[in-house]
């Protein structure tokens, strides 16, 4: 404990024990991601600790063998489709709910929480049945739509918080200066809602890129996404190649955090 306390004091905080406790949690949180980065650099045929020597051979083998390239492209496409569909839906739903008198507003809000109350495995099962009946299974955009359905509340919340903090008198000002309704929306309202749209989009994109269980249920081999491919690989073997492809995700996560920090600031992102 004295060591932890020393760390706390070194950081000169007024909560030395609390800081030490939080730092232990921090290690607990990031360790699984970091260990993947370390394991991916091992040169051996199996993952061993400590790695005998470091090499990038598994990263090169990813490119040479190429079995993860299609799932990677699928994942990026699915995430892009999901984000593109969700932006207009999130914008119009958030504006509709906040700016207009809507009857049964409370009921509609509960309804919009349905993607959270229905467990993901059940949502996957439902979409397997519905998309199967309509004949959409096997389409990459259907996977994108599925991920929009299960994650759309994040987008609506994110935009709604921007709508709430937006001052409507700005719109009146633009109108009284002669701007048409649509011009006002394009040049005044939309830019003011951008922070919400950006953090919502980032959220949607990252969640879709990582989504697993619904994708596992509704994808076929042509539309298989990267998490599904990694899952199948983990069950099959223990090659460090899986660690290499998984590192792509860890690195993507770190890049996304840096982007989020630059665009909206991590503190702000926390409150959306």
């Amino acid at each position: 404990m004295s060591l932890l306390r020393g760390v706390g004091q070194h950081l000169k905080t007024d909560h030395p024990y609390l800081t030490a406790f939080a730092l232990v949690e921090l290690i607990f949180l990031v360790l699984p991601s970091l260990i993947i980065l370390v394991a991916s650099l091992g040169a051996g045929e199996i993952i061993a600790f400590p790695p005998d020597e470091l090499s990038l051979r598994w990263y090169f083998s990813l490119l040479d063998e190429g079995e993860y390239i299609q799932p990677f492209i699928n994942s990026v496409m699915v995430a892009t489709i999901c984000t593109i569909i969700s932006i207009p839906i999130g914008l119009s739903t958030a504006i509709g709910l906040n700016r207009y008198d809507i009857r049964f507003e409370h009921g509609i809000q509960l309804y919009l929480l349905l993607p959270f109350t229905v467990p993901l495995v059940v949502s996957g099962f439902i979409l397997l049945i519905l998309f199967g009946r309509i004949g959409w299974i096997g389409n990459i955009w259907a996977v994108g739509l599925a991920l929009t359905i299960i994650n759309i509340p994040f987008m609506i919340w994110s935009v709604a918080s921007s709508v709430n903090s937006f001052d409507p008198t700005l719109e009146n000002a633009a109108r009284s200066l002669g701007a048409e309704e649509i011009q006002t929306f394009r040049h005044v309202t939309l830019p003011a809602l951008m922070p919400g749209v950006i953090s919502g989009s980032l959220m949607m994109f990252m969640l879709a890129l990582n989504e697993f269980i619904v994708s596992l249920i509704i994808t076929i081999s042509d539309t298989e996404t990267l998490p599904v491919a990694i899952y199948s690989a983990i069950r099959g073997n223990i090659s460090p190649q899986i660690a290499a492809i998984s590192s792509v995700y860890v690195i993507a996560a770190i890049i996304a955090i840096i982007i989020a920090d630059q665009l909206v600031g991590l503190d702000k992102f926390l409150h959306s």
Binding site: L26, P32, I35, P227, A256, L266
Partner: peptide, 27 residues
């Protein structure tokens, strides 16, 4: 300290459940 704590929060949040389960398998 705040930045580091937030970073530690978002790295797992953004890297998905399969990746983290795999990390635990290695650990």
């Amino acid at each position: 300290l705040r930045y580091v704590l937030l970073f530690g929060l978002f790295v797992p949040f953004f890297s998905g459940v399969i990746i983290r389960a795999y990390g635990w398998l290695i650990l």
